[in-house]
């Protein structure tokens, strides 16, 4: 296991070994590092922490936070909390899916964006709320969407 994924996962596993919550903690850090849980990472983790592979997979698929496929360059989280729902989150996410041409698989064809509809982000007073990467946007209306997406589109253009 001397690939980048193997080495980095090994380091993460060593940091968490023996502490309470080590499995979810290590999985979370792996996901922060790679954007998702690569299969090789999960296999490395299983042997380093001495936890059966089946149990890691059951945990990784039970909790909605973990993803087994890579996200887009920019990951969009649309909050599905009650306040956001009442104030039009459904229409908002439909617009994002439509405008970014994203289908059920949740990632755009050019892999620039991915979308997840997520559990309450706890910014209910600013509903409806959308988080792009680490930045949270509040009181998002359909008419603001284009403006919010603009900086992320530019960056993608620059890279092409």
């Amino acid at each position: 296991m001397d690939s980048e994924i193997g080495i980095k996962t090994g380091e993460i596993a060593q940091r968490w070994k023996g502490t309470p919550g080590m499995l979810t903690g290590a999985l979370q850090e792996i996901q922060e590092t790679f954007g998702y849980l690569p299969e090789e990472g999960i296999r490395t983790l299983a042997s380093e922490l001495d936890i059966p592979l089946s149990r890691i997979f059951s945990v990784a698929t039970f909790y909605s936070f973990f993803r087994l496929t890579p996200p887009g360059l920019h990951h969009i989280q649309v909050c599905e909390g009650t306040a956001c729902h009442v104030l039009g989150a459904d229409q908002l996410s439909a617009k994002l899916f439509r405008d970014l041409k994203i289908g059920d698989e949740g990632v755009s064809e050019d892999r620039l964006f991915s979308i997840d509809r997520v559990r309450c982000l706890g910014c209910c007073s600013m509903a409806p709320v959308v988080r792009i990467d680490d930045r949270t946007y509040g009181r998002v209306r359909q008419k603001n969407v284009a403006g919010i997406l603009k900086p992320y589109l530019k960056e993608g253009d620059g890279e092409n």
Binding site: P20, G21, T24, V59
Partner: peptide
């Protein structure tokens, strides 16, 4: 110690939360 949840509403239930801390579903 800080232990992170991973996105499951049922984890708020005491016995489910304990399983989550133990690294189980």
């Amino acid at each position: 110690y800080l232990v992170s949840g991973a996105g499951a509403f049922v984890s708020g239930e005491e016995t489910a939360l304990i399983h989550s801390v133990e690294g189980r579903i």
